[in-house]
């Protein structure tokens, strides 16, 4: 681990430079993100806190290369995202990022095991290895007895944990979690946060999105967002 404050500082894994995202709907323009600049160093655990509708998910989509900025520049792991092709983005996502979506986004009519194994499928991992790693990830989230359940046979909290398992199964450098505890009771919420902290302690970079100030205390750094703008200006890179 590189000690904090040592020079030279490692290049940021996430570097947003005056990024804006504007949605145009029927002539009405919604500025979901306005001039957001943020740098996340490798190994950081950053919480993005803001009220509903403040642009948190929009920001996560851009960081996760699912969406592109309307203005500004974004570099992921040093790569200028704007210059990458769709396939290049897919490869970057597959190698670098694990997502936990606010709305889980599990594949319907597909077992928990297969859901968790899907990112590995697109990395070209063999079937046996996939099963092994997906099982391990699910067990780590306390779902060892739900491997063959389909999403509609799981509770909301269990689905969320499957989503977390899917995010960590590829052992990605960057984990993006959008309200990963939103549907969990205090105990299992704490378990999920513990998993994230553990991943952080093994050198993963975590970006946690939440509206809950208490959940945010799990992170080593907090960034506040309101109306599409970061409010703690001194945090900007």
């Amino acid at each position: 681990m590189i000690p904090i404050g040592a020079a030279p500082a490692p290049p940021p894994i996430v570097a947003l430079d005056r990024v804006s995202r504007t949605y145009a709907m029927d002539g009405v323009r919604v500025e979901a993100l306005r001039d957001v600049s943020l740098a996340v160093a490798p190994g950081e655990f950053v919480a993005i806190i803001g009220p509903s509708g403040s642009g948190k998910s929009t920001m996560m989509n851009i960081i996760g290369c699912l969406d592109r900025p309307s203005a500004g520049a974004y570099r992921l792991a040093g790569m200028p995202v704007a210059e990458l092709s769709d396939d290049g983005l897919a490869r970057l996502r597959s190698r670098t990022i694990g997502f936990v979506f606010q709305s889980y986004n599990l594949l319907p009519r597909t077992t928990a095991l297969e859901n968790v194994a899907t990112p590995l499928l697109y990395q070209g991992v063999g079937r046996r290895e996939r099963t092994k790693r997906a099982t391990a990830a699910l067990e780590r989230l306390g779902l060892g007895d739900r491997l063959h359940h389909e999403p509609n046979q799981l509770s909301g909290g269990q689905q969320q944990r499957v989503a977390v398992a899917r995010a960590i199964v590829t052992d990605p450098a960057l984990i993006l979690a959008d309200e990963p505890t939103g549907n969990l009771d205090t105990a299992s919420g704490r378990d999920v946060l513990a998993v994230l902290r553990e991943l952080h302690s093994t050198g993963r970079t975590i970006v946690l999105i939440t509206h809950n100030a208490e959940v945010a205390t799990a992170a080593t750094r907090q960034v506040h967002i309101r109306d599409g703008q970061l409010t703690d200006g001194w945090m900007a890179a």
Binding site: G64, D86, A90, R91, R93, R95, T118, P119, Y122
Partner: peptide
């Protein structure tokens, strides 16, 4: 979902 978790076109 598949694209988000790494599927290419």
């Amino acid at each position: 979902i598949r694209k988000a978790v790494g599927a290419r076109g």
